[in-house]
Design a protein around this nucleic acid. Structure first.
Length: 301
RNA sequence: GGGGAGGUAGCGAAGUGGCUAAACGCGGUUGACUGUAAAUCAAUUCUCUCCGAGUUCGGCGGUUCGAAUCCGUCCCUCCCCA
């Protein structure tokens, strides 16, 4: 099995820099594991690592599609696995760096999506409970695992049921195991410190010209339907662009949303991965991480 | 100095005698997560170890079987006129 190192953790914790250091130290290449950083034109709001900061380390899956194109997990799964193959075959260590838990899990575990993209029209005449009742009739197992109010999920499970293989049938064929020799390092620290870092980063984004970046690509209301506009850093400008909010309000929203996102990321890493947690405030943080990685690299080497 | 408005949980804001530990929103916390995932959704949020109990609605005092809601008084904030 290919060895794959994952650097995870909440936004603004310093994943990108640390991944570069790991790449330099362990002869690796980096694969972006962040759902929004795949969009080419959008850099400031997504806190993309600069060319200088990459220090010559190759970065994959960064800037792979134009912001007008909608990327998704299944595609990430495919491309990430290809990149892992490619890097490993050249004798280097693939390092996936990013905070999108769902993307990481889909690529690194035995997730198996349907061949074709399934979709279903949202029947506006049905309310959440009625829709959920439909799913209960077709795939009771999935229905009981999805809250009726989570209409998106209910619809998706219904689409799968209509395709012939229900969601629960599909999940039953998967073991939920990693398909690579995985090592997950999660960077974290006290909540307050993370919050401070986030506030500082938002400040910096504004200084670096976030507003211009947003105006340039999303002034046209049509562009606001792109998935890339869903990212924190962009969607908050909606009211501002239409003159209904001040820049100060946008900034506040940016900070709050990012903080909330960081919390959800932590929940994901806590429960979905078996990881080695490193407190970045620990003076020995780096050496602890390096030791953990070295030991893992020696296993089955 | 005169006139007016108001002080409710971390914040905003309902409530104007019992059904109120107090709607709702925000924020916080916890969690779910298999093709929008930086998305979507759920639970929880005065204190105490569950039932249950104990303290809350600017302070103090009073009326009442019962008060965030009525009365008195004091403190504070805002607006208008001087």
């Amino acid at each position: 099995m290919n060895k794959v190192l994952v650097i995870g953790g909440p936004t603004a914790i310093g994943k990108s820099d640390f991944a570069v250091e790991c790449a330099l130290r362990f002869n690796g290449e980096i694969i972006n594991g962040d759902s929004q950083q795949v969009y080419r034109e959008l850099s400031i709001g997504n806190a993309k690592i600069s060319l200088d900061e990459r220090r010559g380390v190759p970065h994959h899956l960064l800037d792979v599609v134009p912001y007008s194109e909608n990327y998704d997990v299944a595609r990430f799964q495919r491309e990430c696995r290809e990149a892992i193959h490619d890097i490993s075959s050249r004798g280097k260590l693939p390092i996936v760096c990013g905070g999108t838990g769902h993307y990481l899990k889909a690529a690194l575990y035995d997730y198996d999506f349907p061949e074709e993209r399934l979709s279903i029209d949202d029947p506006a005449e049905l309310n959440n409970d009625q829709l959920h009742a439909q799913l209960m009739a077709q795939d009771p197992q999935s229905a009981s695992a999805i809250h009726p109010n989570n209409r998106k999920r209910v619809l998706r499970a219904l689409a799968m049921a209509h395709s012939g293989i229900t969601k629960s049938e599909r999940l039953a064929t998967q073991k939920g195991h990693p398909i690579v020799d995985l090592k997950v390092i999660v960077l974290d620290t006290e909540r307050r410190v993370v919050a401070d870092r986030i506030a500082q980063r938002v400040e910096k984004m504004i200084q670096n010209g976030l507003e211009e970046e947003v105006r340039r690509y999303f002034s046209d209301p049509k562009a606001q339907s792109y998935h890339s506009f869903l990212g924190i850093g962009y969607k908050e400008f909606k009211g501002y662009l239409s003159g209904q909010a001040t820049l100060e309000e946008v900034k506040e929203a940016l900070i709050v949303h990012t903080r909330q996102y960081a919390r959800r990321q932590l929940t994901w890493f806590r429960h979905q991965f078996d990881a080695t947690w490193i407190d970045i405030q620990d003076p020995q943080a780096k050496s602890l991480a390096y030791t953990a990685i070295e030991n893992w690299l020696k296993e089955n080497a």
